[in-house]
Design a binder for these strands. Structure first.
Lengths: 305, 305
DNA sequence: ATGTAGCATGATTACACAGTCATGTTCAAA
DNA sequence: TTTGAACATGACTGTGTAATCATGCTACAT
């Protein structure tokens, strides 16, 4: 049967696990993280695997070495196997299975976290792990099998991945009543009038706002630079700044009855995104639990969005 | 990462390969085939795996022991992994990948063999392995991953399996010119008049013929009992017997210009079957080569049927 | 050119494992 | 109840392997 494979000198679970580590880290060096012993192990073990398969698993043209296509393939096959075995073991031992959910920090905090919270009460035996990654890394993680599913912009999902759900949300303005009691749509002029807490740097939305302001011959009044939407929300909460947040932040970020007005922006300032839940089909095959969770997550997210 | 799994004492490729062997054979005893050493190994190794997973992999209620549901699951996960690794290794070494095709003996000889022959000329790097199994075993083999795809009756495909293609064929009469020069549809009366080479035993088609004859108050003239359709074809070739064969046997079984008349049967004697190509989705995921072959096989079979 | 990050290799140790043989246990059928 | 088939267990051996330390090599950056 498969004894010829299992018996082969140079092929072992440890070596395959090492390959997976290198695949995840990107290179031998990163996988060993300063541990010289580990470095020598990894180098040797991958060389031994190469001897077994008669193929280069590491591309040795430039340093640091990256995995070759065949190296990645073997790593993926192994990873899937380990994951399945791990699931079986946890299932048998009554332990909770780990499900890795990826998204941007904002989405995790205000969407995934509440949604998963609700699910954990119903379904026992699941541990969610949230990964805060940018969309490129999320897609990569999905394809490698390191992330089970991800909440990302629909446009970012490559055709090789599965996806379901279709949630539209827009950035809306949150203005403390202390600053303004207007409740109608937010006008562009107010970009200059109100003191805004904005994200530092060159984020998409920040650039969008600045260009809109410029087009009107005004300047965005960036009174506070924050490094995350959470900070923006905190700034708004103080009552001294207005800010833009995704609409779904209202319930999650502000206590009910707080003196904050949520205001839709006028048409010219609309900034909309379409989210979807993406995953890799192979993952659902190797991990039945992941497939089972998809409809549940969809309905939970649907309740919030 | 997965070091915690790979390091676990009691978990090894050999033990998993052993589990696969037992899964395939059905029990420890059958897997060891009289080798007492192997028996003790298998017993021990499965016990060690059980310790790792904390679950019974063998159902020890009645002997011989069968695998439990969890045992089967682990075996399947492992089998898939081994198969993928094996494919990678063969691909890397430029070796041919083995593709297991299952069907009844008749279908193998007169349909699959010619079809695969034609494909091997185009596609290099594939070795076909034919398995002659009854449909129950074929379905079982498909689900276990031991058979890559099978040509079986459409009605036999359970909903859990994929299938494609839809080939209708009927059993028709082959009559040597030496016995009769009639070329019209075969009448029931001829069942008694002509000397028939038939399959021994209680095959579906044999019973069908006998009941039709009885209904007409005549008796099937079974002049020769054969144990395979190949033998029936050989008998017909001698010129001394008539016989029923699947219509597609004409080209494959008889040399062109041989003195055999192929005759459709009259309506009351029609015996039709619908074939399809069945496979398991997980197999196509683990073995890309299998997925690639499906359309090729379909067109090749289409040419014959 | 030279340093250094990134990887390879040789040698050694301790251990887990597969393999083997002999014998024990359990269960089902005769 | 007996018998044999099916599986378990204890004891031992040789081997492959992970782990560790020391040192050597090679290519990229400065």
């Amino acid at each position: 049967m498969f004894k010829h494979l299992a018996n082969q000198s140079g092929l072992s679970l440890e070596r395959l696990a090492s390959l997976c580590e290198v695949a995840e880290a990107g290179s031998i060096g990163q996988a060993s993280r300063g541990d010289v012993n580990k470095q020598s192990q990894l180098s040797r073990q991958i060389a031994e695997l190469e001897a077994v398969f008669g193929v280069e698993l590491l591309a040795r043209q430039s340093r640091p070495f990256r995995l070759t296509a065949q190296g990645k393939e073997l790593a993926q096959v192994s990873r899937q196997f380990f994951q399945s075995v791990d699931d079986l073991q946890k299932q048998a031992g009554g332990e909770a299975q780990r499900v890795v959910v990826g998204a941007g920090e904002t989405l995790i905090q205000w969407l995934l976290f509440p949604a998963c919270e609700a699910m954990q009460k119903q379904t026992t035996g699941i541990v969610f792990a949230f990964k805060n990654l940018d969309s490129a890394r999320l897609v990569d993680g999905l394809q490698k099998g390191e992330v089970d599913f991800a909440l990302i912009r629909k446009e970012e999902v490559p055709p090789s991945l599965m996806h379901a759900g279709d949630w539209l949300y827009s950035h809306v303005a949150f203005v403390p009543k202390a600053l303004s009691r207007i409740t109608t749509e937010l006008k562009i002029e107010e970009l200059a009038r109100l003191p805004w807490a904005v994200l530092e740097g060159q984020g998409h939305f920040r650039q969008f706002l600045e260009s809109k302001a410029r087009a009107q011959g005004i300047k965005l009044n960036a009174a506070l630079e924050c490094s995350s939407y959470t900070q923006v929300a905190m700034a708004i909460q103080t009552g001294r700044y207005a800010g833009f947040l995704p609409a779904f932040a209202m319930d999650a970020a502000f206590a009910p009855g707080s003196a904050i007005l949520q205001r839709q922006t006028e048409k010219g300032l609309r900034y909309e995104r379409k989210l979807t839940l993406a995953w890799r089909e192979a993952t659902t095959r190797a991990r039945p639990i992941v497939e089972k969770l998809i409809p549940a997550i969809r309905t939970q997210l649907g309740k919030i969005l």
